[in-house]
Every structure is written in C-alpha cells, then in structure tokens.
Design a protein around this nucleic acid. Structure first.
Ligand code: FES
Ligand code: FES
Lengths: 144, 144
DNA sequence: ATGATAAAAGACTCTTATGTCTTAATATAA
DNA sequence: TTATATTAAGACATAAGAGTCTTTTATCAT
C-alpha cells in the first residue's frame, strides 16, 4: 500500500473538514460515523494533526475539531508527512541504505523520477480545491 | 512503503540471479548471505516465484534456484504482481470501494495518472537491462 | 547404499499496524 | 453546581507482516 490506513483516514477527515469549513468545530463522532471508521482510532489520528497545528480541537459540548488554517493552504503532502512521514519519498525503493543520485541502486533511475513527480503532485494539491471539486462535481468523499 | 519487504527481497534476489544468469542454479544461502537477509524468509519468498514459473529450483547438492526465463523477459511488474499483488495499481488510494474513472474519489484524478505511469515504467523495465546496468555501470545490488 | 547438500513445508515467535475500551480532563447548558 | 458532550490519554486486543526454527524430501557425490 502506498499510504497507511491512518494516513488515509486522516486525509479523508481533513477533506470532510474542508468541505464543512463554515463550521468552526465538527465532532469527531460525526466524521467517524459518516466514514464508517473507528471513532477512537480516528481520534488518535486527529490528535497528531492537532499537535501539528493543522487542525484545532475543543473539548465539551459544541466542541470537536476544525481546520486551523485555510483549506487551500493545506496540501495533501502536509497530511501525509505528519502521519506517514517522508520515508516514502526519501528511501531507496529496494531498501538499500543511502539513496542518492551518486549512490544509486538499479531501480534508482526509475524511482527517483516517479517519487519526485508524485511528491510534486501531492505538494501542489490542496484541500481547498479538493473540497471544491467534492461539492461542485459531487465527487464522493466516503463510501459508495 | 510502496513495496513490502517480501517484494523487495524478491526483486533483489531475481536481480542477483539475472546478474549471475550464466549459472544454472545458485543456492539460496548464497543470495541470503550476500544480501544480509534471512535465509528461511527468502526461501519462502522464492517458493512463490518458483510456483509462478518465473524461477526454477533444484534440490540437493548442486541445487539452488535459477531463472526459468530470459532475464530480459521478466519485468519488475511481474515480480511485484506475484509478491504484492496488483492492489496498489487497482485500488483507490483513499481506500474507497470501486475505484474507476466513472466512480472517482477526490484523489482519483492525481492517482489515476501517477499509478498508470508507475505501472508502465515497472512493466517496461526488465531484469535483463537492470542486470546489464549493474555489471556495466557497477551499480550496487546489495548493501553499501 | 550412504552421507552431504539444498529446497519444501510448516510450526512457531516477534514486531508493527490497526482497532477497542476505559478513564480523565474540559467545555457548555440547564 | 450538576449533567452532558466531547477531546485527551493510555491500556489493552487483534491481525498482519516479518523473521526463526525444525522436519521432510529430493539430488548429487562417494
Ligand atoms: S538507491 Fe535505490 S532508489 Fe535510490
Ligand atoms: S476512486 Fe479513489 S483513487 Fe480512484
């Protein structure tokens, strides 16, 4: 798998918040119910994003989580970096130590380009435009 | 991670066999020792490739494993398909059911292109040319 | 034939990712 | 101030991936 489950759930949750960005706080329970994933698991994932300052949280009635920045200023790469780290984009695809242009393995030539392109796309794609597509083009955000 | 450890070890072993394709059989022990990975683990991985007909094996003294096809006719994608399956190239990157152009999620547009390009590159790259690079350009196959 | 070599098969362990549950802390509302 | 809603924190459980060990089977060399 390219992304861990935690990362995928995190992305989907931030997408949900981006689509609902007129609401200051959305209960995690609402997100987990709609997406059909574990509430407690999602809570732990979103705590990471809260600590990273990407989203904010509020306890108690009327509390929940919400974006801490404009959706358009959060990239897919930002979320991936927080939840899965950057090893996917830094390490040798064959697991050899010290991946670098002057220390390549046989797959380096292919992988170097692929991972750079992927990283660029993920950095350029922001949650503002993704949310816009979801609302305008009725792209699905969860399930069917 | 993009590829599982099993898959990475499998690729590296097939690379080793491709570089040594003048030898009919190479003991798995030799490969696992050189690559610094578990002999028994590698044995299980190579059994999968043997059952798939990609490599052949022979028990007993002078036995081992060897390519069952020309190195140039085995693609990286072939090995990945056997060991990790094709889910990476078929499934929705957000884990939603039924990834298809007429049933997209918000990341489909990016991911559709990226995964198609990656798949194409992996299909086009064969172990013959990889092995050639390793011998001619002294590209590392394992460790430092 | 016998012994040595090496893959095949499968039981077993260890680690990590994933998921569940319980309790505490904090904010709102009555 | 008390009840309710909601995140925070962390213990615990389950599953999958990764790795180890032992036994069996097949081949070669003597
Ligand atoms: S050294 Fe292997 S991908 Fe760079
Ligand atoms: S539906 Fe999500 S990547 Fe295709």
């Amino acid at each position: 798998m390219l992304l861990s489950k935690s990362c995928v759930y995190g992305i989907r949750a931030v997408l949900y918040l981006s689509v609902n960005d007129e609401r200051e706080y959305v209960p995690i329970k609402e997100i987990s119910d709609k997406m059909g994933i574990s509430f407690h698991f999602l809570t732990k994932i979103l705590q990471v994003l809260t600590n990273a300052g990407m989203i904010k949280s509020m306890k108690g009635a009327k509390g929940g989580v919400g974006l801490n920045q404009k959706a358009s200023s959060i990239s897919l790469y930002d979320v991936i970096r927080e939840l899965d780290g950057e090893t996917l984009f830094e390490e040798c695809v064959l697991g050899l130590p010290g991946c670098a242009d002057d220390n390549p393995c046989s797959m380096h030539k292919i992988w170097r380009v692929t991972k750079a392109e992927l990283k660029k796309e993920l950095e350029e794609e922001n949650f503002g435009s993704l949310a816009k597509q979801i609302t305008e083009d009725e792209i699905r955000l969860y399930d069917i």
